[in-house]
Design a protein around this nucleic acid. Structure first.
Lengths: 350, 350
DNA sequence: TTGTACGCGTTATCAG
DNA sequence: CTGATAACGCGTACAA
């Protein structure tokens, strides 16, 4: 039945006008000037217009299916309602991507449009001037792609808000901090609490991911040291052979850690499988903790312990915050939003 | 070390000018008229300009860090370089999301920008006029949100290309077909080939997903009928208790199918775990096939058989196709791009 | 209370 | 080959 919808009559306006209606068209139909149309539809402050006229204008706009041209408005006001998000250098992970779906919808409620910009490598002033071409209301970008000069340029150009995200607060702009160290520390704390003293942290051997892995490792190391335990770094590509090789090595028993933080749930699953194939018991011989709380981790044997991240950073909250910063022209670099509220989800694997 | 980058000197232009440079600024600096600037930078056909002048203009543009204002250009030309993608009603799945990362980057190579639009529910003419506010070069949207009137409106408004995606080709616009039936048929063919005669297909009980599930089921049913076998529908929410209940029922033995297509890998993992907990052996008692070829499926016991989908639809190919359609103003509704080249990946679970 | 006029930065036309 | 000049659609002082 939905199949025929394309052919069904449409409840929209009956005027199959050539090109989109302009405010002049509306004015003509309502019998007023174009300025009046603008005043009415924007609820302009400082002007008083009779209720009768307002009604006529609104009716005309409705009848013509008038929608103001975004570029004309932007050109005039010097500011669009676009939130520009230059793509991160490392492909967005499951966390960000899952947020994206709802974030876009919530931004819409604040009349903001998310534009994804595909220049994953450009940085600094050259990047900034490219971003400014759409006069975005806000730019949402990794902090390490910003320089003092580029931020100045964005602000001068009229971009109200620049928000960075990255592993640490930026001195330049408000930052959303993604604290990988805290994730590692959380996992390590759990393992140490269960009596494990000889820890290892997997660092993905994939380029791009290794930086995140290193920061998570640092969190593990710090926590271990505080507890008088040790932690070592283990580089591992996402590859069954490599995992098997590692597991075989550990199975010989001499240098085997008793607790592993596996970077994330996917690496954890790879590792657990390899360890079991090598004859080791999880968690008895080696306890394993992942991160990200993928739904799938619950179905493994043993069920996967994991670090859940970003529990309370809802898309709605993020969008609201962004909208408020845009409205208030907030650009205080001291503002920090922590994206990472970490929480241990203990299950059977540790 | 990257931490201090924000403070480092920037290799960009040395002019911290107030607001972004305009083509008039460039003209002044180069000692030519503004029109000449436009000609040079756009490589205008039909005009001949001395190489010396061209060089002066380019140098001036570079020096000022000039980047043409997107809204002014759009206002003037009536067409932006935006590819507008109104968010699908069902949150984008892993397949689409993973494509997004690279698609954006590839679109960029064709000077196209992807804008995500958060109006997951709006349809028809009202939606179309909203989309037209940015005068997009292309609109990429589910076919069932288009009507004949809305497509006309988009075309009239100057939007070169409207591309739909959905389960079946649209009579209105070029369509990217996502053929869920083929996925189900592929899985069923595999199961039947291994001698299973009593099939079941899981249909997710989640709203939104159930429609996809129903189409995959249809593929299973059709394949089963062709082979003289039977297939039944099993509705299942993504929930361990529900899965346990189902598994317990099947463990009693009377009404148990011998082959199951589990909708996708996630449902398959949920199901396999539940079946095993109920004392059934996979694949001996029940063979299970998933879909999507998640990397994680390889690590299960038994390793998960799955239907791999969209093998050859690369982001690069998609972006290129889109760019070409935009350039050629291609709007032939007969064009169909099949997003689903399905392929069985047999492993241990079937 | 409403209408007139100007300019935002671009592209494109047309005389010089 | 180049320099004025006119739109594009909208917002907003200012005049009526």
């Amino acid at each position: 039945m939905r199949e025929t919808a394309g052919m069904a009559t449409d409840t929209g306006d009956p005027a199959p006008s050539g090109r989109p209606a302009t405010s002049v068209d509306v004015a003509r139909l309502a019998g007023v000037s174009q300025a009046t149309v603008s005043y009415v539809l924007n609820d302009a402050p400082g002007v008083t217009i009779s209720e009768a006229t307002r009604a006529r204008v609104r009716a005309a706009a409705e009848e013509l299916g008038y929608a103001p041209d975004a570029s004309a408005r932007t050109l005039r006001t010097g500011r669009s309602d676009i939130v520009l998000m230059p793509l991160p250098a490392t492909p967005m992970g499951a966390l960000v991507l899952s947020l994206l779906n709802e974030l876009v919808e919530r931004l819409r409620e604040h009349r903001l449009t998310l534009a994804l910009y595909g220049d994953a490598r450009s940085r600094g002033v050259a990047a900034a001037r490219d971003w400014m071409r759409w006069r975005p209301a806000a730019v949402l970008v990794e902090t390490d792609r910003l320089t003092a000069a580029s931020v100045r340029r964005l602000h001068d150009g009229g971009c109200a808000t620049v928000i960075g995200f990255g592993p640490a607060p930026s001195p330049l702009v408000p930052t959303m901090v993604i604290d990988d160290g805290a994730i590692g520390a959380c996992a390590a704390g759990h393992l140490l609490g269960r009596g494990r003293r000889d820890l290892a942290a997997i660092v993905p051997a994939e380029p791009g991911l290794d930086a995140y892995g290193a920061r998570r490792l640092a969190g593990v190391t710090a926590a271990a040291e505080r507890a008088g335990a040790v932690a070592r770094r283990v580089d591992l590509p996402f590859d069954e052979d490599a995992a098997a090789w590692l597991a075989a090595d550990w199975a010989t028993g001499t240098g085997r850690p008793d607790g592993v933080f596996a970077y994330n749930d996917e690496y954890a699953m790879l590792l657990v499988r390899a360890l079991q194939d090598a004859g080791l018991d999880v968690p008895r011989d080696v306890a394993v903790v992942g991160a990200d709380d993928l739904p799938l981790g619950r179905f493994l044997r043993p069920r996967l312990s994991t670090v859940r991240v970003a529990g309370d950073v809802t898309a709605a909250g993020l969008a609201g915050r962004l909208a408020r910063m845009v409205a208030e022209r907030d650009r205080d670099p001291a503002v920090t939003v922590s994206l990472t509220r970490v929480e241990m989800v203990p299950r059977e694997s540790s």
